[in-house]
Design a protein around this nucleic acid. Structure first.
Lengths: 146, 146
DNA sequence: TCAAAAGCAATAACTGTTGTTGTTTTAATC
DNA sequence: GATTAAAACAACAACAGTTATTGCTTTTGA
């Protein structure tokens, strides 16, 4: 994929981890690499199975811990799916997702203007808005064919 | 609350349940009654504890089953919270919620025009939109004071 | 009143996730 | 390059929220 954009350099991962007091390890690098190479929005389980092909001795708990580390240092985001397993995403710029109610597939949406949201839904008085979450639920193309 | 609007009549519950092949039982009525009388958006656990004061022998699993029955017959909606326990709501007209990231409190938002959403976020091609989900995340008034 | 259908409590089990343990690896310093 | 403290590791155990299973009880509808 994008190996020359800086984001992909191993040094990037090391640097980011270092900035939050984290170490760079072989497993962590593998989780990160998988996240970069895989289809978008894999679940922790899927990441585990993928990384396992390279490092057969890795455990699911370790994958969870490493994903947490990546989220903490800002290299990934965790996207809770409402029902079922959360999904992980390398993109960290703010955007929304569509989610297939049958297979759970998530697809990125173009980032929406928060200004529109702010006007559209009025928060209760005294409520300090941190961010919005928008999801488009429905049936993806694949599932629609069946 | 609204005891004269028809929605609150016991007959309403019986009728709705009957229409989907469900029975009217003392526990089910108690769960429903609690949901009507309680604060908005309680969790299954909270409902369990509340109903338990009236029916001490009820179990959490029964509460879940009864909530499921109420959701199935359209009298309640289940609102997954992303993280933590789902919450239940008697209102069935379509609307959105704000959610406090500290205490989990949910507050109804005025229903937003779906048309705006449709224009704002464009679903991927081939994706058949079932509905939208909008959440305002942040800090509620109570938590903000601390 | 009576049989069939559904609900019930009490579990056990399940999924997704996090905490704990003692051991190994890493990065920073010498 | 050797040393050492901090962190990550595997292998669990445990957790929360939820669902499935069981054999018994209640409700419904005839």
């Amino acid at each position: 994929m994008t190996n020359e954009d800086g984001i992909g350099r191993p040094a990037m991962l090391r640097e980011r981890l270092g900035s939050v007091g984290g170490h760079m390890t072989r497993r962590r690098a593998a989780v990160y690499r998988f996240l970069r190479g895989a289809w978008p929005h894999p679940t922790a389980e899927e990441i585990y199975l993928g990384v396992k092909e390279e490092l057969p001795r890795i455990s699911l708990a370790t994958v969870y811990k490493n994903l947490e580390a990546l989220v903490n240092c800002g290299l990934a985001v965790k996207v809770p799916a409402g029902d079922g397993a959360a999904r992980y995403d390398l993109r960290t710029d703010h955007h929304y997702h569509s989610r297939c109610l049958q297979c759970g597939t998530m697809i990125d949406l173009e980032p929406a203007a928060e200004e529109i949201l702010r006007n559209m839904v009025k928060a209760p008085s005294g409520f300090e808005v941190s961010h919005y979450r928008v999801e488009v639920l429905g049936c993806c193309e694949e599932c629609g064919k069946r």
